[in-house]
């Protein structure tokens, strides 16, 4: 079973929710896998401290052209929708960072001048933190395509225990990749105009993907009640509310979790996990 924590707007508490839920789940089930798929800026490992077990380099396939075999027909260039291989004065030139690794250019190349080679895009780090198994992807600087790395991180989901995914913000391809196979999605937001605007986009994405989802509102007490009103109108479950409390912000800035340091808020995370369990079991 997999719960993904996503949000339209960044900085609304995905990591806070994912790490604290992981601590609740570890205590309740004895074992949980936390997958940080926010590969452009993973930060779950700052809060869940463990021992590094191993690391793995992640590569994608990109074309390489053997110019001695190339007949300069331009078929590869015509085929590529991403301008990753382009015929210039007849000669195919490869732009590795544009490549989506579909392999199409090598298929349409009649003289078989194109073969695929590995191109590194990032790495995956594996940490063991007691009952929490933390796995996080880290995209290389200058590498623009994160979905292949996110998809590789997800391969390490546990088959028979709970997985929690810390997803990237936004509503584009990296988010879709992170949440598309989840059993439940938590959409984190804040009670502000920006928070609501981006929540609506995230709700549209979740509905399009036919996901079971609920909203978590962070910094409740700041801003206004527009997010609460929207959720009521749309009949969306609010699964968790985190108050606007300076103590929480101070803990976060010191890399500490709410669960381990503010016992008065433990219950709300425990109840959120129970509610999700209920929704997944009963539809």
């Amino acid at each position: 079973m997999t719960i993904a924590v996503a949000s339209g707007k960044g900085g609304t508490g995905k990591t806070t929710i994912a790490t604290n839920l992981a601590l609740v789940a570890a205590e309740r089930y004895g074992y949980v896998t936390l997958l940080d798929c926010d590969v452009e800026e993973p930060n779950s490992h700052i809060f869940i401290k463990g021992q590094k077990v191993k690391e793995e380099v992640v590569n994608v396939k990109v074309p390489e052209v053997d110019e001695s075999v190339c007949i300069e027909c331009g078929a590869c260039s015509d085929f590529c929708q991403y301008n990753a291989i382009v015929s210039l004065k007849g000669k195919p030139v490869v732009f590795k960072e544009m490549c989506h690794s579909c392999g199409g250019c090598s298929l349409v190349c009649q003289p078989k001048a194109i073969h695929e080679v590995d191109h590194r895009i990032g790495m995956i780090n594996f940490y063991s933190a007691g009952k929490i198994n933390l796995i996080y992807g880290l995209l290389d600087v200058g590498s623009p395509l994160s979905p292949p790395l996110i998809s590789t991180v997800k391969k390490y989901e546990s088959k028979n225990a709970l997985n929690i995914i810390d997803a990237p913000p936004g509503t584009s391809c990296p988010v879709i990749e992170a949440i598309k196979d989840a059993d439940f999605v938590i959409l984190a937001t804040e009670p502000t105009p920006f928070g609501l605007n981006d929540l609506i986009l995230a709700v549209e994405v979740s509905r399009k993907l036919n996901k079971k989802f609920a909203v978590a509102i962070n910094r409740v007490g700041s801003g206004d009640d527009r997010v609460h009103k929207y959720c009521k109108e749309e009949n969306i479950l609010i699964i968790l509310e985190i108050p606007d409390d300076r103590k929480i912000a101070e803990l976060y800035s010191n890399g500490k979790t709410i669960f381990e340091n503010l016992p008065e808020y433990r219950k709300s995370f425990e109840e959120a996990l129970t509610k999700i369990d209920g929704v997944i079991q009963n539809g």
Partner: peptide, 15 residues
């Protein structure tokens, strides 16, 4: 209209 690599395809056009 291209999602990616607009500069590359435009440059190819001029070449």
């Amino acid at each position: 209209e291209s999602a990616h690599g607009a500069g590359i395809s435009a440059a190819k056009k001029l070449v």
